[in-house]
């Protein structure tokens, strides 16, 4: 390695090595745990194809004891996957605090910007090298962890009482949004370091920024796209929710197709329900859900938000540095 990249590597190598070690441990652990899980499924000839959804009645795989065995697999793995998901979801915060905040904040704090930026290499090369190295590492870390979560969770995804795609431990821990969020965490930490010119307060700001944006997106998540309305005519029992994400909106439709939420109408069942529906003139029932396919749409929306914020923060950081490096 040469030039400013050598400097970036020399200063970040300890962090890179620690991150690589943590990733390696995680990968080995996941490989073993997943192999166990797959062996169990194979040994008992369990297929989870019919077990999607907490109300999956077709979950009759592997004979009489099948559903029980599936529940056992889920019980054995869900906690551990959730822990891995928590680590993966925490990557942006860790990156922001321990990689982004000191990336330039510590240099400004100790005055070494005055040393590094009065050499032949200029601000652009110095900034590009150090941010690019950190970004590549942050993206790699989060991508590897996101892939590990997806790899382990995939075979038992969206099944019975297991983990679903819309669960925070899954949605925030896998997919492109997890990688985008790590990049945002790095950018937020870097920007905070330049803003505060000290590492410790920058860490606080980075933590606040990442948590705030994550929570906002969590709250906004149901708002991006309209849910799908599943309609079943007359008294036909409603379709199983399966791996879809229920919005909790149930109700009835009249001939004109107007919606009548269940919170206000016919909170009953059986013969009484038939009578109530007839009285009110309801001809069908509806249930609003977000199908599992929405996972990717929502993931790309959040990825775009994270990358956009990261780009804006980095541009602003560079503009500030160009004016003042001491």
């Amino acid at each position: 390695m040469r030039g400013t990249l050598w400097l970036a590597w020399r200063q970040q190598r300890a962090t890179v090595l620690v991150a690589a070690a943590v990733l390696a441990v995680c990968a080995v652990w996941v490989a073993f745990r997943r192999a166990d899980m797959m062996a169990f499924l194979h040994d008992h000839s369990l297929s989870l194809a019919g077990c999607k959804g907490w109300d999956a009645e077709e979950c009759t795989t592997g004979g009489a004891g099948g559903p029980e065995l599936v529940r056992r697999v889920l019980a054995d793995n869900t906690g551990a996957i959730r822990a891995l998901g928590a680590l993966s979801a925490a990557v942006p915060v860790l990156v922001g605090l321990f990689w982004g905040a000191p990336l330039i904040g510590r240099e400004l704090e100790t005055g070494t910007t005055k040393l590094a930026l009065t050499q032949g290499a200029g601000l652009r090369a110095w900034f590009a090298s150090r941010f690019a190295l950190a970004a590549v590492c942050a993206v790699t870390c989060s991508a590897v962890l996101a892939a590990l979560v997806a790899w382990w969770w995939g075979p038992i995804s969206n099944s019975l009482d297991g983990l679903y795609w819309y669960d925070g431990f899954i949605f925030n821990a896998t997919g492109p949004a997890a990688v985008g969020c790590a990049l945002f965490g790095l950018a937020a930490g870097t920007a905070a370091g330049v803003l505060h010119r000290r590492t410790l307060p920058a860490m606080g700001s980075a933590l606040a920024a990442v948590v705030l944006v994550r929570l906002s997106l969590q709250v906004l998540r149901p708002e991006w796209i309209a849910p799908e309305r599943r309609v079943t005519p007359g008294m036909t029992p409603k379709k199983y929710v399966g791996s879809a994400w229920s919005t909790g909106e149930f109700g009835y439709l009249d001939k004109a197709g107007r919606e009548y939420p269940i919170s206000h109408y016919c909170q009953t069942s059986g013969a009484e329900l038939r009578r109530c529906m007839a009285e009110e003139g309801f001809v069908a029932r509806y249930h609003k859900v977000r199908p599992a396919g929405d996972f990717w749409i929502l993931q790309w929306i959040e990825t775009a938000v994270f990358i956009g914020l990261a780009a804006a923060l980095i541009a602003a950081t560079y503009a500030v540095l160009r004016r003042r490096l001491v």
């Binding site: 030039g3 005055g111 070494t112 050499q119």
Partner: peptide, 26 residues
């Protein structure tokens, strides 16, 4: 430029500090 607080990288060895000079002044 020799700044007032003479900033250096405390975790670099002397040899690495000189290499820093070479790498950033190609």
């Amino acid at each position: 430029f020799l700044a007032q607080d003479k900033p250096l990288y405390p975790r670099f060895t002397v040899a690495e500090t000189l290499r820093f000079g070479r790498e950033l002044n190609r």
